[in-house]
Amino acid sequence: MRWRVSTAGKFYDENEGSVVYFDPASGDTHLLTDFAAQIVRELSGAAKTSRELEDSLADMTDTADQAQLREAIATVIGELVELGVVHLAVHDGQVVDSAPA
């Protein structure tokens, strides 16, 4: 499955460990962890799979444990989906579940 941010929003980041994110689609403002904000940034550029996110975020995290990183991404994606910030990427009514060829 590929994930995406429907409309790229705005960030207020003072390097404090948390980031303010404005979602123009809903008009809501969220306080995100650095990690969650980075996921939103990654998905604002292009739809990505969880695996692609793992590759992108590996440098950002201290953990060498790939399984731990995968679990953290899944948790945050779930929360961002609940907030309406992140959605499944859909093309022609179908969930896009792999990277384009």
């Binding site: 207020y12 003072e14 008009g27 306080l31």
Partner: peptide, 29 residues
């Protein structure tokens, strides 16, 4: 207080942050 947390709390205490939409975010930032 951290500025990011203060931003969100100040927005909570705003009468019209949501009404102003993106302009509200820009003004608060």
């Amino acid at each position: 207080r951290y500025r990011s947390a203060s931003f969100v709390l100040a927005a909570y205490h705003s009468f019209n942050y949501s009404v102003l939409g993106e302009d509200g975010f820009d003004a608060m930032q």
